[in-house]
Amino acid sequence: MKEQIIACAIAVAVASIAQAQYAGPGAQAAPDTVRQVLQTGKDDQAVTLRGHIVESIGDQTYRFADGTGDIVLEIDRERWPEGPVDDKNTVELTGRYDKELIGASKVKVRSLSVVR
Rank of each mutant, 00 (worst) to 15 (best):
S16Q: 13
R79S: 12
E55C: 02
D70V: 01
I6P: 05
S16G: 15
R79W: 03
K88E: 04
I75V: 15
E55G: 03
S105Y: 02
D86N: 06
R77M: 07
A27I: 07
T94I: 06
T33W: 01
D66F: 05
P25W: 06
V54L: 05
L73G: 10
R35Q: 12
A11T: 07
V37S: 05
I17V: 14
V37W: 02
K99N: 04
T61K: 13
I6Y: 07
E3S: 12
I53E: 04
T94V: 09
G58E: 08
Q45E: 15
K106F: 09
P25Y: 11
E82Y: 02
F64A: 03
R77Y: 06
V109M: 03
Y22F: 15
K99L: 07
S16N: 15
P25L: 13
R79M: 10
D98M: 08
S111D: 09
A11C: 08
H52V: 01
K106C: 04
H52L: 02
A15S: 14
T48D: 01
P25I: 11
R79E: 12
E100M: 11
V109P: 02
R35C: 05
E55Q: 14
K108M: 04
Y22H: 10
T68M: 09
N89K: 06
D32M: 06
S111K: 05
I75K: 06
R96T: 10
V37K: 03
Q28L: 14
S105L: 05
A46M: 06
Q19T: 15
L93S: 03
T61L: 13
D43I: 01
G51F: 01
D66Q: 07
H52Q: 10
P31G: 09
D98N: 10
A23S: 15
N89A: 09
T94Q: 08
K88Q: 09
E92P: 00
G24C: 11
Q60R: 14
I10R: 13
D59T: 14
A29C: 08
E92I: 00
R96I: 03
Q36G: 07
I17H: 09
T94G: 07
E82K: 03
R116S: 11
K88R: 13
L38T: 04
E55I: 01
I10F: 07
I5R: 12
D87W: 02
Y62N: 05
